[in-house]
């Protein structure tokens, strides 16, 4: 009995090895394990074997069953592999055509989300604006350089008796007094993102660009809060390890005024070719000038505030590490540029 079994096993393994198709393999499987297969039969006859031998034969039989099933399935896999049709997975994929949103749209999305998360309210104010909102109410003297024809576009219309000339707004700051008038009384946390125009065109200037303006007015707003807001923005917009610093600067509508720098992420603040001693310039900021609060009918004895206004394009380019050599390319309609983002 034992010998018959071992012979059967060896014979079967040899036959399995000789098969070259799945069909042949299946025939052998049937011969062994089918309803009237050899192994099936022996299993059935096991009860006739005497008690002493039965245990031993049983173990052997089980062992042979397992071995043969393993051999069959391995062979089956081998046959499958060898008979599979040739297929080239290195062939390039067909990329679906998709649409693209402009960099400025993407930038505005991110900037507004960052500020909306800490309670800022998005706003938008006229792109064609009266001199009064763009300059006069912002404490800019009538002979200020920004108000002359070399820097700001003027619209060829008669002057407004109260608000003066019509201009293309050169900054989002013209929304400051408009927001104060809309809200009436603080708290104000505005993030005004809008188109601006300046009379300049070269590699780093385009006559049309975008700015975002933060304005916070409430009781007890201090430079410490401005620093807190800027650090929050730097961490959430640029990355957890970024820091900001303030340097003295000058704007008519803020006092004190600052230039805001952000730590460089290329050199982690150690100084490199792209930055100045580890810092990159972000833009201007300051504490709202009391004259501006007065223009917006807010009492500077009760309320204080801060403001900052930066270029959307520039800030986003700094984040994305985009080294666009000429800002004018951002306003090109060339698909080879527009579809990069």
């Amino acid at each position: 009995m034992k010998e018959t079994l071992i012979n059967l096993k060896n014979q079967a393994i040899a036959q399995i090895g000789d098969t070259s198709t799945q069909e042949e393999l299946e025939t052998i499987r049937q011969e062994m394990f089918g309803r009237s297969g050899k192994i099936t039969k022996i299993t059935r006859e096991l009860k006739n074997v005497n008690k002493e031998e039965r245990k031993e034969i049983g173990i052997l039989l089980n062992d042979i069953k397992n071995t043969l099933q393993n051999v069959i399935s391995t062979k089956s896999n081998n046959l499958k592999n060898s008979t599979r049709t040739w297929f080239d997975v290195t062939i390039p994929g067909k990329k679906p055509k998709i649409g693209h949103l402009h960099l400025v749209t993407q930038a505005i999305d991110e900037i507004s989300k960052t500020f909306e998360n800490v309670g800022f309210v998005r706003a938008r104010y006229p792109e064609v604006e009266w001199d009064w909102f763009a300059f006069e109410s912002l404490n800019m003297p009538s002979d200020h350089a920004a108000r002359d024809e070399w820097e700001t576009f003027f619209v060829d219309t008669p002057k407004h008796p109260k608000f003066g000339s019509m201009v293309l707004t050169p900054h989002t700051s013209s929304g400051q007094v408009r927001e104060m008038m809309r809200v009436g009384s603080p708290p104000i946390r505005m993030i005004n993102i809008a188109k601006c125009y300046r009379r300049q065109i070269d590699v780093s200037h385009y006559p049309m660009f975008h700015q975002f303006e933060g304005l916070v007015i409430d009781k007890g707003i201090s430079i410490v809060n401005l620093k807190g807001t800027l650090d929050y923005f730097a961490k959430n917009f640029f990355g957890e390890n970024r820091k900001t610093r303030l340097r003295p600067y000058n704007f008519q509508f803020t006092e004190p005024s600052f230039e805001v720098d952000i730590s460089c992420d290329i050199c982690s603040g150690n100084g490199c070719k792209l930055c100045k001693e580890g810092w990159l310039e972000l833009g201007g900021a300051g504490m709202v000038h009391p004259d501006v609060l007065k223009a917006g009918k807010i009492d500077p004895k009760v309320y204080t505030g801060f403001a900052f206004g930066w270029g959307v394009e520039r800030t986003f380019m700094m984040k994305a590490g985009l080294n666009i050599p000429d800002i004018r390319l951002m306003y090109s309609s060339d698909l080879r540029i527009l579809t990069q983002y």
């Binding site: 998005r122 938008r124 916070v216 430079i223 807190g228 650090d231």
Partner: peptide, 23 residues
């Protein structure tokens, strides 16, 4: 030195959204 000043977000109540905006 501005760098010697601490940095803190403001507390206080939040303003309401402008219902006219369609962003």
């Amino acid at each position: 030195g501005y760098h010697n000043l601490p940095s803190e977000l403001m507390a206080g109540s939040l303003p309401e959204k402008n219902p006219l905006n369609t962003f």
